[in-house]
């Protein structure tokens, strides 16, 4: 049964794409959660839709044989421009940044629907980009996915210490002379690339879930940044591959299955995690230090007794 699935060329391409998305989306998502920009992926996803339609329009204008040959490159370009714009607006002032994100949400969808109509398609053509169509992944798509994933991973993992510093305490990073502005742009561009990579697997509307939900799962079980990222990647790969496998046997939407699976994992882990942490042996959280005041003898004795209790 499994061999049957693994020898199916469509399924092979889909599995590779799912595997790559499962790793890259949580890596980028970790930085977005760290910077409290969990919804950035959604904003970029909406803008990418306009890019898809724009690529379609250009492709149709050039008389290409397949209408959507330029859809993915169009999405990449629009997503990168959109994410950089969001970062520029965010830098200029927080209040207008929120507003700009909202305008991008609406403008992205409206622009996409409008342009696809002009290109001679219908909004139905956009559905596969909105909700994913991993079974239609072509060889060319797969290669683009592989290359973009490697770029995202190289940056996200290779620069993790600098990106952590800039996301954790931006002011300290500035006072350390780090190129914080450039690092922020890098995060924005990498997010845009991830959105377009994940577009075929889970669709633009659910991309953000794949970036954020595995991180939310990881946070339940670890309190370190590095381990959060690693755990989130494991969760991402597991839900992507198992979600896709389910859709090989049952006729359900791969993107929706993957996201529902991820949220189910989140629910289960948040129920189980408190039980696991309770069993861990604890050490005395209070340092054994003298107070800033002179204590009477009786209080000193009580302090010694309290210290013994905690040991």
């Amino acid at each position: 049964m499994i061999m049957l699935m693994l020898t199916d060329p469509f399924m092979q391409r889909a599995l590779i794409a799912a595997l790559l998305v499962g790793v890259t989306a949580p890596v980028v998502g970790t930085y977005l959660v760290q910077r409290k920009l969990s919804l950035l992926g959604d904003g970029i996803g909406h803008v990418a839709l306009t890019g898809v339609a724009l690529g379609w329009l250009v492709g149709a204008g050039m008389g290409l044989t397949t209408d959507d040959a330029l859809a993915v490159p169009g999405a990449v370009i629009a997503a990168v421009i959109g994410s950089v714009l969001i970062e520029v607006v965010r830098r200029r002032g927080r209040t207008s940044g929120d507003l700009a994100l909202a305008i991008m949400f609406y403008g992205g969808i409206a622009g996409g629907v409008l342009l696809i109509g002009i290109a001679g398609g219908s909004s139905g053509n956009l559905m596969q980009y909105l909700f994913g169509s991993i079974s239609t992944v072509s060889d060319a798509d797969l290669w683009l996915t592989v290359v973009l994933s490697l770029v995202v991973l190289a940056i996200g993992v290779g620069l993790r210490h600098a990106l952590f510093s800039a996301s954790h305490d931006e002011e300290f990073a500035i006072a350390s002379g780090l190129p914080v502005w450039a690092l922020n742009i890098v995060v924005a561009v990498v997010s845009a690339l991830t959105v377009t990579v994940a577009m075929r697997v889970v669709g633009l509307l659910l991309v953000s879930a794949l970036m954020i939900v595995p991180v939310a799962v990881a946070q339940q079980v670890t309190h370190a940044f590095g381990r959060t990222m690693l755990t989130a990647c494991v969760v991402g790969v597991v839900v992507c591959v198992s979600g896709l496998t389910i859709t090989y046997w049952y006729n359900v939407s791969p993107g929706a299955t993957i996201v529902v699976l991820a949220i189910a994992v989140y629910a289960v882990v948040s129920l189980v995690a408190p039980l696991l942490t309770r069993r861990r042996p604890t050490h005395d959280p209070h340092p054994d230090l003298p107070d800033d005041v002179d204590l009477p003898a009786a209080a000193t004795e009580r302090a010694a007794a309290a210290a013994k209790e905690c040991r």
Binding site: R35, S38, A162, F164, H168, F172, S176, G177, L178, P179
Partner: peptide
């Protein structure tokens, strides 16, 4: 108590002090 949306360890926070200027890796 500066910090982002993800908990980090003492080691991770102090290590970020080793990055400065063009030094982007530990």
């Amino acid at each position: 108590g500066a910090g982002g949306g993800i908990p980090s360890t003492v080691q991770e926070v102090v290590a970020s002090g080793l990055l400065h200027g063009r030094r982007l890796r530990l």
